[in-house]
Amino acid sequence: MNSFEYAMPKRTADVFRALESSDSIIKAGGIDVLDLIKEGIAHPQRLVNINSIDELKYIEGNQTTGVKIGPGTTLAELASSEVLSGSYRALAQAAGSTATPQIRNSATLGGSLCQRPRCWYFRNKDYHCTRKGGFTCFAVNGENENHAIFENDFGCVMVHPSTTAVALIALGAKLTIASAKSSREILVEDFFVTPRENMHRENILEQGEIITAIHLPPAAKNMVSYYYKQKAKQSFDWPIAEVAVSMQLDGKKCQNPRVALGAAAPVPMRSKEAESALNNQEVTIDIAASVGKEAMKKATPLSQNKYKVHIFQAVIKRTVCWASDIDPFA
């Protein structure tokens, strides 16, 4: 670990100043950043701790007005938020199923969106992979059981680790991204960058920019949502497959569904196939199963992860059922 400067701004405006030098990085909950530094992947000259900025920690609004969330809000706070218990519950479920209680008490929503990949080759200092500037994706011909089953033909087959992003995409959420000079709004699904677009970054944040707010749009009439993940061990783990669904449910009839998949591609992705299979349908177990099948039609699993295709079908089926209050095992 290198020695580095440590900045602890008290206000958002001060963050931008602290971020001016190009080798500074942000620490919020510190969960991922500490790993990255210890693992020799990040070598910051300055660490900017934004965890003490109170104006980044809030959950405001309601289902009618929409909800605005500060990026410094912890996953534990999201998991137990009253505001997120109704139509937006996928976000609370996603936050609540991330990692362990200890980590959820520190990890923030902003940090969850900006995590770096968990690919074991990326995290291992002995592998200089494409994402770290090398010329080989070791996972393609290596151990790839946890890797992408979509978008995996462009030099890096990692899956994006953000669980909250999956729920936010299903809920149609937007981000406010700001720098010292400007600010912009962007859909969460457009925030992430595929290897095809750029191999060396996971999102569009430029140096000096931070996420300053996350917006959930007003809940449409009869909107329901659900998030579920399948993992190798049940106490806490990274997902084998994770799915978030939102839709308007008139009786059992589904409209305007949004289906997002995590641990499927190098970015948290929407499944348009799943959405069109679900749209305007009366939801039943069979329909839910066919949504799972449709979503996986274009999957291109790697040598060791065909199992994930199978699991995604099950997880999508179950999530669609649970969102519609149907017992998938009945």
């Binding site: 968990r118 291992n124 190798a232 061990k233 106490s235 990274w238």
Partner: peptide
């Protein structure tokens, strides 16, 4: 059920606790 040492070229490839999983008291 859980502990899978993945060998690659004669050494453990998943030498991290993220990838080599063991049951916790909750499991």
């Amino acid at each position: 059920l859980y502990e899978d040492v993945v060998w690659r070229n004669g050494q453990m490839a998943n030498n991290q606790m993220t990838n080599y999983i063991i049951p916790t008291s909750l499991d």
